[in-house]
Amino acid sequence: MTVTMVSVSDTAGGAEAHTVALGQGMRQRGHDVLLYGRCPGWEEHGLGRREIALGPKWSRRTMASGILRVPLERRRTQEIADSSIYYMQFKREQIALTAPLSRRAPVIWTEHGRWMGGAAGRLLLAGYARAAEHVSRVVCVSEAVADDLAPVVGRDKLVVVPNAIDTRCYAAPPAATRTALRERLLPSRFHDRRVAIIAARLHGAKRHDRAIAAALASGSALVVVGDGPDRERLERLSGDSADVHFTGHRDDVPDLLASADFYIYCGAETDGTPTCVLEAAAGGLPIVAFEGDPGTELVPRCGGLVIADPAELTAERAAALLDVGGSGVAYVEQRHGRETWLDAYEQIFGECLR
């Protein structure tokens, strides 16, 4: 089977990591995998790629000009080689390219998050519904995502496959290992502190300010891993506090998680199944999350606490969290392991070829 992915993104995020993991997994299972476009991390794993002249990934800022380019970008599908399956995950590729490619092979989409609101969401929905007439399957990362799409796609095309992680990369470390990691990775002022961590793209929609407020309310140090457009504002918000440390983008997230005591999750309204929660739980960390955020149903299963306001994370409650560390490891291994996830995608691809 040949799986051809069409995806253009220059930002390292959860969807891009999902694409790389799926490409790696399908190749390891003996399938041919090729990407048309760009995806951070793709070539670093030795996966094949070809360029295709598509414009920037759609956003509220680029959508109007992107819609005007649709006829041109549809013609550019002629540059894409024949394949067993075509796979897409971003709205521009889904809306613009599904119809012409579906005449050559089944097209599969993955939906990573809840449907966006506002005028942009309504504008996209009409085009999405038309494109969905030509898609074979839409893989949703949660039941909530599937519920959003059912009115415009139809339940017969929807299948839920929760996000997964490579649990081999995460482990609850012995105390001596955590101490060594702190000494190597964290500021010296954090070495003897209770340390919270958050690892996510720094975007206003994620509302990282809640994590900063909760950590400070609990008397914990906070490590903020990641980069993005909201970094400058967040650094101003934290002021000169010695209790908040920004690392920027890092490739050693498993080690940074292992150096911490608990994880604070702040989700955007459109998030699906948050892989950051799965990674933290697989590393033995208890989780703190906020009421109303997508994915918080995972938190009780992974060991943790859901709060309504940052001030609710008192020093006493933060200290009590440390007693439940490690309780989410088995759950993540059983329900969100990489091999089960790959089995599901391989089955979906195979069914669409019959």
Rank of each mutant, 00 (worst) to 15 (best):
H336T: 13
K206W: 08
T62V: 06
T247M: 03
F262V: 03
V141C: 04
L186Q: 00
G284K: 01
A131N: 12
G127L: 05
A311E: 12
G228M: 01
G66E: 04
C276H: 10
A126P: 07
R207I: 10
A105V: 05
P56F: 01
R207S: 03
A315P: 05
V135S: 09
L216P: 01
D227C: 02
Q94N: 12
G204V: 09
E111W: 01
I198Q: 00
T296M: 15
G23L: 03
A215F: 00
Y170N: 11
P56W: 02
H45S: 11
D240R: 07
A144C: 13
E346R: 07
G46P: 02
V306E: 11
D227K: 00
L47K: 07
G284H: 01
I348V: 10
H191T: 11
C302G: 04
I67W: 05
R207Y: 15
G113C: 12
E339L: 09
K91F: 12
G118E: 06
P294V: 03
R201W: 01
R122S: 10
G295E: 08
P300C: 11
P162V: 14
I85S: 03
E312L: 13
I264H: 01
A196M: 15
A330T: 15
D148R: 12
H112C: 06
A315V: 09
L47R: 11
L47C: 05
T273F: 05
G292L: 14
R201Q: 01
L222S: 01
G283K: 06
D82V: 12
A211I: 03
Y345E: 02
G127A: 05
D252E: 15
K91V: 08
G326M: 05
G248Y: 10
F262Q: 02
A146G: 14
L68F: 04
L54A: 11
M26P: 03
R189P: 04
A15I: 04
A196L: 09
D251V: 02
P294Q: 08
D252R: 12
V288I: 07
T275E: 11
E183S: 13
Y128K: 13
L185Q: 13
E339K: 10
